[in-house]
Design a protein around this nucleic acid. Structure first.
Lengths: 216, 216
DNA sequence: ATCAACTTTGACCATCCAGTCAAGAAGCAT
DNA sequence: ATGCTTCTTGACTGGATGGTCAAAGTTGAT
């Protein structure tokens, strides 16, 4: 009569690594992949466990063997995403050439939105709903990093190494421009329905744009 | 024993104006306003008729007296939105000064996203889900208009009146930049949580950006 | 081979939610 | 006031959906 213990259930308190079996790592991975597909296309409320189960090729109770709830799957997905979300900005080197660094940042963001459009849409969905689940992440980690880099941009501008622009809006503009190609891909595809991928031509355009903007 | 006739129910075929009473116009308006609030914050699947009913101060069956279904409310909202969505681009005057015209277009879009953030989020939600309900609108009306204006921009560029930039990406960039301030307002607010509205400073920044970009 | 722990699932439950209905309340033209 | 139409709503229904459970199947260390 041992109480059934779900592999993910951490006995309260200490949050140690669950020490997962091969099957567990594999199936959790499969579920997250399926859930990403479903959540990014339908939003949290629009997604159903049944859809995710079908997509994953597992039964619904099986999903709930690996994750405590629909919420838990979503949370896990978001957490993993946020982990890498900041990398492109983090990599920006204060000692590098200002214009080169900012252009490279833009390119990394664009590459990311091309390589991970589903992650971008998952994030967009979350923000659109008012960012309820990632509010603290935004208010702390993201904000800190943005403040830091905005400060750097300001210094570069003050030193005359890039044009005088509001550093926050500069960052927002890079987010807007790059994520747009993932988040609004449906619209872009329908407008130029040559079979080209939505990002085609974006890099050249954005390079030109930011070069023009930043050259002192 | 007259069959009950909902005010919105059009007897099949000819789609005449329903000829609405004062109460009908008023309540339909109230419902649409409430639905906009709820749909834009929660997406279609995330919104419930009960929420809309509470927001509108009406009972749920009363909602369904004025609209055939949840879908119908949403459809009506989208239709009204799309009607005005194209106006800023339509107003762009081929005979005006190129740079002034494009800057003015950007400003109109920005004003729109500031004045109607809920509409912007409703639209964004729809596109994020793959634009299922507005596919024909995008493929026909929007596309036609974009093609037309892109052509114009190309001509302007060819004539050396603005810098050489891909006209489609130019339009996409204006959409991305302006709508970002409405759609991602939650994020922007959390990053600079001085009480400023998300659009603060955006106009100056974008004017600078597009002036730099377009000056030949 | 054996057995305990791990994994899988069919059947089921409770809740939520869009939509119905019939009966009553409010408007309004006369 | 009268009587017809338009509005309004409490109570209900059926289907979808997140989540549970007990029993059956599988795995792997010994």
């Amino acid at each position: 009569m041992t109480a059934p213990r779900k592999p993910t259930a951490q006995k309260h308190g200490t949050a140690k690594k669950p020490a997962r079996s091969r099957i567990q790592t594999r199936n959790r991975q499969i579920i997250l992949e399926a859930a990403l597909e479903v959540f990014s296309n339908n939003g949290f409320r629009g997604a159903t466990l049944d859809q995710i189960a079908v997509q994953a090729g597992l039964s619904k109770p099986n999903l709930l063997y690996y994750f405590d709830s629909k919420e838990a799957i979503h949370r896990d997905l978001l957490t993993r995403l946020l982990d890498t979300w900041l990398d492109p900005l983090r990599m920006l080197d204060p000692r590098g050439d200002p214009q080169t660094e900012i252009l490279a940042y833009m390119r990394r963001k664009l590459d990311m939105s091309r390589a991970y459009p589903r992650e971008s849409r998952l994030f967009a969905n979350e923000i659109l709903q008012g960012a309820p689940r990632i509010e603290t992440f935004i208010r702390t980690e993201l904000r800190l990093l943005v403040d830091e880099k905005a400060c750097l941009f300001q210094a570069w501008a003050d030193a005359g190494r890039i044009a005088r622009v509001d550093p926050y809006h500069l960052i927002f503009s890079i987010w807007a421009m790059t994520q747009h190609y993932a988040d609004f891909a449906a619209q872009i595809d329908m407008i130029r329905d040559d079979g080209q991928e939505p990002h085609a031509g974006a890099e050249a355009f954005l390079e030109h744009l930011y070069t023009r903007l930043l050259t002192p």
